[in-house]
């Protein structure tokens, strides 16, 4: 792992309304094969991606939210949520499908600076 690069996926979009969330998740799963140091960051509306209880039958769209729970199997364990974004949306940590680390905007910005590669969704 010594030559592993630090990859950050920055997720800022709500699921289903646009394709960004699903595309990001697919790229994350593919990238996992390359044994890099991967972090997922959820900012702004991106925090909605992790909301528990998604039921997509009514909109006839695939519910891809269970796949976030498989990330652990892919050795992706660094999930960061922007605290301000979570609070602005009336959400709490208990609303998320998976355990996350809450970061303030300032901390998130710092973590972004430490990356070798940043992928934006």
């Amino acid at each position: 792992m010594s030559d592993a690069k630090k990859f950050m996926f920055v997720n800022r979009k709500a699921p289903y309304g646009t394709i960004y969330a699903l595309e990001s998740l697919e790229v994350v799963l593919i990238t996992a094969a390359f044994d890099q140091d991967v972090s997922l960051a959820f900012l702004d509306d991106g925090v909605y991606q992790l909301k528990k209880g998604q039921q997509t039958k009514g909109i006839e769209t695939k519910n891809f939210s269970p796949a976030y729970r498989a990330l652990e199997d892919y050795d992706i364990e660094k999930l960061y949520v922007e605290k301000e974004a979570m609070e602005a949306r009336g959400l709490t940590e208990e609303d998320f499908l998976v355990p996350v680390t809450l970061l303030s905007r300032a901390e998130m910005g710092k973590l972004m600076d430490e990356q070798d590669v940043v992928l934006s969704f």
């Binding site: 695939k62 891809f64 729970r69 498989a70």
Partner: peptide, 15 residues
């Protein structure tokens, strides 16, 4: 059924 994805070989092997 559980995760809505077909796991990669490495993940399948481990699981």
């Amino acid at each position: 059924e559980e995760y809505q994805i077909a796991p990669a070989v490495r993940v399948l092997t481990k699981a």
